[in-house]
Design a protein around this nucleic acid. Structure first.
Lengths: 315, 315
DNA sequence: TGTCGACATAATTGAACCCTTAAGCAGCAG
DNA sequence: CTGCTGCTTAAGGGTTCAATTATGTCGACA
């Protein structure tokens, strides 16, 4: 399997014919056909077959196409990435659990970025706890915010605590209504589906069965629903302070709350990560960062804003 | 530049030494060193240099590392992707603007998935309008939800209308407060930073300068802030029906609203996309889908929930 | 200053890659 | 049936890759 083979495969699919791909590449037809043949042999799949109008993909070919076109695109990017490294701001990639990403990763990144004078650019994304270790060790991310990570010492990760807070349960002041099946509903953000998250831990301690859990795309939406009386919503206390102060939500006592939680910043070992990563990791333990963690803004000026997610890898 | 070269480069960085990488690969030291040399020559950059303890990355090497480790990971995935295509459910990748992704992409995907009897699996992600065409034509996504796309006929994309609605402006019932600089604040979701989105169009028509716009990570959070009196928030009318009915927000009259908007489903030309994609595209124009678009649930059962984003490409 | 560990650089060989021309096959219009 | 189009296979050659052994070079350290 070669990059050129993959790229001719992609081109054949894109153009719908071997002939067109050959002429586009400025080579003979057999050259293209042979590259295809090599891939077919390698994968043990026809990948593309002659169809009514042009070449059409097999199921396996469809899967390969997604992967292959990404690899080709990345190959092209590699050149420019290295070239543009001269003089370009360094990029720091932060992954966080959905709750942290929603409320604090952005402001923290912006604060660090502006404090560095613009030589560092921070972007953040969402990942499940179990994926963070892999992302860090594969250098797909520079810094992870969430639970501590030390399951596998050979990965060489180092976690430092950056925050202590309290997880509470919220509900509408009038009390929540029962769900359609007569049971209470629990309203959580996506971290509720992450078995290693604090939210999941809380739900387990309370003995909540998963059939009574509704997952919202973000924490704010879950609170919104809770304020409307749809059920109980777990929350990090200070993040919902405004909603509580305004009387939209109130704290409900449960046997498991308030539950103490801790957030950590994790990187690969300091000696093996970039200076910027070390610097941000250090910044996160300073009072300035602590202040942002405790009272983050609820909005981010658009000039600094970068959507947390750009292109997803589905394959 | 070869995949094996890239993978040895990644290994050298990961292990911190040429020697260790050589022994891990079961080859001689020069073999590794030579692969490194080829990359160095190709990119015109040292990539890794001998440092105090182990090999350390140059700026360019850092950039390459991110790209390279993805390519290596994808190469590994390619094999299993093709193999697992036999008998595995087909995957449909939907990209949508942030507003649509937040409220309707999930329910639509789930509805189609269950209607197909589980042979199709739908996952959704967020993208800017300008990126959707490229994502579709590069087959990084199968279906895009948002504005129509026909800028470049050679890409072979086809859009069909699926929804008509009204964009309105919301504010707290008591009227919003002025911002710290004495001006009104406009509270938007990330699509406010997408120059081709309906939200941006509305802001332009109203002559709102970007300094008065605050971008929130999602639409619900923006409405939350608006309900607290932080400013004006654009919204697709029916999506905010609940908040309006509960009296948390009210519709504000402006010269540009209500503004008629249209959402489209875009795919590559029917004859060149998979049957599942065609089928979903057709489903989106049925009354059942229309009903979901008009009154989507606010939460998704966790069994069906898949986080919209998995791993981001930063490079 | 000499030595040692570790990386870089020859010089070489076998294999793989990539292209070419020539020929073989399927499907389809007339 | 014939001819045409378009994909595939076969055979051959130039180029690059990947691995080896041997040798050079750089930095740390006593």
């Amino acid at each position: 399997m070669t990059l050129t083979q993959l790229s001719t495969f992609v081109l054949v699919v894109r153009l719908g014919s071997v002939k067109a791909a050959a002429s586009a590449l400025g080579v003979s037809e057999p050259a293209v056909s042979q590259a295809l043949g090599a891939l077919r042999h390698h994968f043990g799949d026809q990948l593309v077959v002659r169809g009514r109008d042009g070449m059409t993909l097999t199921a396996g070919g469809g899967r390969l196409l997604g992967v292959a076109s990404q690899m080709v695109a990345l190959a092209g990017e590699a050149e420019s990435a290295v070239q543009s490294a001269k003089g370009a701001p360094e990029r720091l990639r932060v992954v966080a659990s959905s709750t942290i990403a929603e409320f604090v990763a952005g402001p923290l990144g912006d604060a660090f970025s502006s404090r560095s004078g613009g030589v560092v650019e921070v972007s953040s994304g969402v990942a499940a706890t179990g994926e963070m270790e892999a992302l860090l060790s594969q250098r797909l991310a520079d810094l992870a915010l969430g639970p501590p990570m030390d399951s596998d010492p050979s990965l060489g990760l180092a976690s430092t605590p950056i925050f202590r807070g309290r997880l509470v349960v919220l509900a509408a002041p009038g009390g929540p209504a029962r769900g359609p099946d007569g049971l209470w509903q629990w309203l959580v953000d996506p971290s509720g589906t992450d078995p290693d998250s604090d939210t999941s831990l809380l739900l387990r301690r309370l003995g909540v069965s998963s059939s009574r859990v509704r997952v919202f795309p973000n924490q704010t939406a879950a609170w919104e629903a809770a304020a409307g009386g749809a059920g109980f919503a777990p929350a990090v206390a200070h993040l919902a302070a405004r909603q509580i102060r305004r009387g939209e939500l109130r704290v409900v006592d449960t046997p498991a709350t308030p539950m103490e939680i801790r957030w950590y910043a994790t990187t690969v070992r300091p000696e093996r990560c970039s200076a910027a990563t070390r610097s941000m990791s250090h910044f996160l333990s300073t009072p300035g960062a602590m202040q942002l963690l405790r009272a983050p803004g609820t909005g981010i000026p658009p000039s600094r804003f970068r959507p947390p997610v750009y292109v997803t890898i589905w394959s």
